[in-house]
Design a protein around this nucleic acid. Structure first.
Lengths: 184, 184
DNA sequence: ACCTGAACACCGTTCAAGT
DNA sequence: ACCTGAACACCGTTCAAGT
């Protein structure tokens, strides 16, 4: 939080690293190839960042902002009642360009305490949003937690689970599941 | 699929790679460190495998076996009615040692067609199991698909979502969610 | 303030040579 | 049949030197 001066190419490194992470996963966030792509020597990387890990942390921080307030603001802008807003949330979440980045970051979180904390903060923020909507629908605390976790699992599961549904569309299956979870 | 002769140390490479994948993610599956751990030179690796990618494929294949038939056999062995079996499934799935491996593999699947196909086959096998149990509970095809996907999302979401539930336990929250999904 | 260039250690891959 | 050892290319990191 606060105090970073906007150096011209620090942001360029972070953007390039984010794209590499989306395209090729963690292994593609490699200093030398990134330097080549940016048209500088890899030596210059170490002016902006302590090491590769610091670059990953910067990508993580950017993802945190976009993955919480970014998406929630867009849901609120679209409007509708509580159930509409939850449906909008998963639609935006599933259309998101940052899905592959999110996947890679959740994988990192499995083995890195700091990454896990950031992911937990993002999940907390999103779950709080889901909980608030379910409360508006009149569910009690226990129901809010069970149905809320199931709704959020649906959103996460949607891009992690690689299964087909016969002639039914995934969109339809999830809409039906939401219907069950949003109805008493 | 048959035809492989059981070379003494091929299996040792695969086991070591699996442990490295669980412990340190994809980047930890590195030929030279693995060779050091196994007490051989990295040059010898290339007798057993074409390249690093082939080692990863072998780990993937092993995961596929354990992640489908392995877990399903244990659920069937434990017994109970359809709802009991679904609850056993997520209990075993969440206690599983291979969770970190599964996470890493799902991350790889986001960018690799072949990995994605194997993950899809695993998801299909598990979802078929879930579907069959829901059919036994008397749900029609549409309900089976919606509730089944939500149940499976719960199982997957459980180890991907890093959120707390106040004084409620995760175990309790998921049990409640299952209750909702298994009840008309 | 930001970058280059050279250096070094480490890892992926190849291959001729050993047993 | 299985492994070693040396070689080479590539990437992470450091640092003295440039502008």
């Amino acid at each position: 939080m606060g105090g970073r001066r906007a150096q011209k190419s620090r942001g360029a490194w972070i953007a390039a690293a984010g794209e590499a992470l989306a395209r090729g996963g963690i292994e593609a966030v490699a200093v030398e190839p990134l330097a080549r792509a940016l048209g500088v020597t890899k030596g210059s990387f170490y002016w902006h960042f302590a090491d590769r890990r610091a670059l990953l942390d910067a990508v993580l921080e950017a993802w945190q902002r976009v993955g919480t307030e970014g998406i929630i603001e867009r849901v609120e802008a679209k409007g509708g009642d509580a159930a509409d807003r939850l449906r909008t949330l998963w639609q935006l979440a599933s259309a998101e360009a940052g899905l592959d980045v999110e996947m890679a970051i959740r994988d990192l979180a499995a083995r890195d305490e700091h990454v896990a904390e950031v992911v937990a903060a993002v999940d907390r923020r999103r779950m709080d949003f889901v909980r608030a909507r379910l409360r508006e629908l009149g569910f009690d605390a226990g129901e809010v937690e069970a149905r809320g976790f199931a709704c959020y699992s649906l959103i996460i599961g949607n891009h992690f689970i690689g299964v087909g549904h016969g002639r039914r569309s995934r969109r339809r299956v999830i809409a039906d599941a939401f219907e069950i979870l949003l109805t008493r």
